[in-house]
Amino acid sequence: MKLHPIWQEYPDLQPELAKTLDLMENSVKLKNKPVEIAVMEMVHAGGKLLRPAYQLLFSRFGPDQDREKAVALAASIEMLHTATLIHDDIVDEADLRRNLPTIAARFGNDVAVYAGDYLFVCCFKLLADYAGSLRSLQLNSRSMEKILNGELGQMDRRYDLTMTVDQYLENISGKTAELFALSCTVGPLESGASEKFAKECAQIGLNIGIAFQIIDDILDYSQDATAIGKPVLEDVRQGVYSLPLLLALEKGRSELTPFLQKKDAMTTADSQAVYRLVQQYDGVARAHQMATRYTDKALKAIRKLPADAADTRGELEQLTLRILGRKN
């Protein structure tokens, strides 16, 4: 399977990421062919494998360099991530992801639910086979709980015009940033690094994940559907209010509220008006500033990582700058 072009600049990571994809593919063995096909399509859908890459890089910070284990843990994390994407698309009734039909849109909700469930099973099978202790299983279980709580928090606040920036940050810390934090924690922990060091790495991942989600939300107000691989402003129509809109509401609430009160009856013209007002009231610019603050926190901590792993530290810095600048 082909890797995303982003990894051409990281030749030492390419072999392990390729093995990660191979292991994911080889882990899928189902008698039910529709579900198996759906799972394989998601595995082959062209994701960037960012979370496995962070897991593989952070796994170099430790005395026990079992690269087979590192690859297996990377595959388990990507399977967990893929499962959450499938289930998210079902809940959101999304038709597109990465400019391709979602599993639910193509195969129906029943097949999609089972495909996501099966990927959860694959994730924990790999952990059971390769994790050196119950600690990694505990971390994965707790991460799943935090991801779910973030999703539930987002669901609870749909169409909520009183939602605050702090509540938004709490939600994305769970639904997006937690998996980045897990990716940066499991690697060093399973390589024999200390709990204290692993917790410091988790904070790096959390800051990366928060910045990543803010930037993803900014794209909804700055690029077209083809560029981001999904319909623009779909979140707003579904009552999911992200940071650019929340910040714009602080200055332009009286103008924005009439459009948002229409809820799912919002027209294309209404969406375009919301888009313009978010730009006009500096929602995008201020969201960029907040993303930059979280990016800077992550980079500052990365630069303090052990000096004897300078090459890995440099790759982490370069990768973080790349993805948080959304350079393709």
Rank of each mutant, 00 (worst) to 15 (best):
L3D: 09
H4I: 10
E16D: 15
L17G: 05
L23P: 05
L23G: 02
E25F: 10
V28I: 12
L30N: 07
I37G: 09
M40H: 12
H44C: 10
Y54A: 13
L57H: 04
F58L: 14
D66L: 01
E78V: 08
H81S: 01
D88L: 00
L96W: 06
N99G: 07
P101K: 02
A112S: 10
A112E: 05
L119N: 03
F124C: 05
L127A: 00
L127Y: 01
D129N: 11
N140M: 15
S141E: 11
E145T: 14
E145F: 15
K146R: 13
N149Y: 09
L152R: 08
G153T: 11
Q167I: 04
N171F: 10
T176M: 04
L179K: 00
A181K: 01
L189N: 01
L189G: 01
S191E: 02
G192S: 00
S194D: 02
F197G: 01
E200Y: 00
L206K: 15
A211M: 15
Q213T: 05
Q213I: 08
Q213V: 04
D216Q: 09
D216M: 07
I218L: 01
Y221T: 07
S222M: 13
T226D: 14
Q238H: 01
L243S: 02
L243E: 10
L249G: 03
P258T: 10
L260Y: 01
S271H: 12
Q280K: 15
H288N: 14
M290W: 05
Y294L: 13
A301R: 07
G314R: 15
E315W: 13
T320C: 03
L321T: 12
I323P: 06
G325W: 11
